[in-house]
Amino acid sequence: MKLKYFVLLMFTGLLNLNAQDYYFPEVNANWAQKSPQSFKINETQLKNAVDFAKANEYSGSRDLRIAILKGFEKEPFHQILGPTRKRGGPAGMILKNGYVVAQWGDTKRVDMTFSVTKSFLSTMAGLAEDVGLLSNTNDMVGNYIWDDTFKGAHNSKITWEHLLQQNSAWSGELWGGKDWADRPPSEGDIDDWKFAAPKEPGTVMEYNDVRVNVLAYSLTQLWRKPMPMVLKDKIMDKIGASSTWRWYGYDHAWTEIDGLQMKSVTGGGHSGAGIFINTEDLARFGLLFLNDGKWKNEQLISSSWIKKATTPSTPNSNYGYMWWLNKKGDRHWDGLSENIYYAAGFGGNFIVIDKEHDLVVVTRWLEPNKIGEFMTKVNAAFK
């Protein structure tokens, strides 16, 4: 019996000795690099992937105000309501076990990140659940928010999960944005969209920034403080992010809580605003998720939340709690692991988490329809 126990201890010890610890960059320090060969990564194949990213820049204008107005020109009443910024060129980082094995472009330049913001917003809900502000994502949001946002026969049925999975079908207007006018169908009369009965919550995913901004507003009410403050205190400062990132709302999106005026932020840059951030800070955020919510020895976001956030929703197998999932479906990257998940934003901004390869990939201003091909090239370097 003692011999078996001794053998078990030896085996466990060997496993621990062979376990690869992640590297976490310090605050304001140069990010440690390692050669691809040190991880048995094919350097030629990895360079091919990087060259592909640099050669396939997003085709829209570098003046993002112009790109936004052009990209959403079919929407009635669409206009710029928050800050925008001219962007830089392609940039990115590839991390293996936390170490930089490839990078390109200006990784310290702050740029808009559009719907990558949604994955940060989702994390604010996760933090609320972790600290007990939110009991369960299946709770009705109207039980937490006292005003009229979730009143009525339809909106009263909406849960936090519905908002997080973008299948709430919330009906109404927020900050001048009308739910029915956001990304309307390409066919049909405007009255068909305007007067159509809202779908049952939880049944159909509809990518809709007005409803995402309803989630941001609701979380601001729940936390009783602006979301950038929560993100800074709970996540960004603790992962050693720079002081350069910002999270904006629309110019007029003010709400009063406890006698204080607070800006309600957006979950994207569809009409301007959202998170403006550099590539290295995005990579730090990705590394936190690669390590199941733990930075060094501190658990910042629970692994149970990350599991929920990366579980497919019923109406869309490729979408969780504002993270895209590489499951079988319309957005599946053929030949790549179904356990990959990622944040994605307008103009080709991506944070990709590949747990099987201990990999974080951040790429910016890549032509969006090239991301699957790019990740296939990255994956080839590991074969």
Rank of each mutant, 00 (worst) to 15 (best):
G89Q: 05
T44K: 15
V110C: 13
W31P: 07
A55M: 09
A128V: 04
S115G: 02
E129F: 10
A19M: 10
Y22L: 15
L127G: 06
Q79T: 12
G98Q: 04
E57M: 05
L69Y: 00
I68G: 06
K118I: 02
F114C: 07
A53Q: 11
V27G: 00
K118Q: 10
K40P: 00
M93I: 15
V100Y: 04
L121Q: 07
L17T: 13
I68A: 01
T84L: 03
G105C: 11
G71L: 01
F77W: 00
A49H: 12
E43Y: 03
N48M: 10
R62W: 01
T113D: 05
K70A: 15
T113P: 05
A125F: 07
R62F: 06
F24N: 05
V27T: 07
K34F: 02
I80P: 04
S122Q: 02
F77D: 10
N30I: 08
V101E: 01
P83D: 11
L81I: 07
M93G: 09
E129L: 15
E75P: 09
V27S: 08
N18T: 14
E26Y: 08
S115R: 01
W104A: 10
G105V: 06
N30K: 11
G13F: 11
S38F: 00
F39A: 07
T84V: 13
K34W: 00
Y22R: 09
Q33H: 02
Y23S: 06
N48W: 06
N16K: 11
A67S: 12
P25H: 01
F52H: 13
D111I: 06
R87N: 09
E57H: 04
K108H: 15
R85K: 15
D21F: 03
G71C: 03
L64P: 01
I94C: 06
Q20R: 13
N48A: 13
N56G: 08
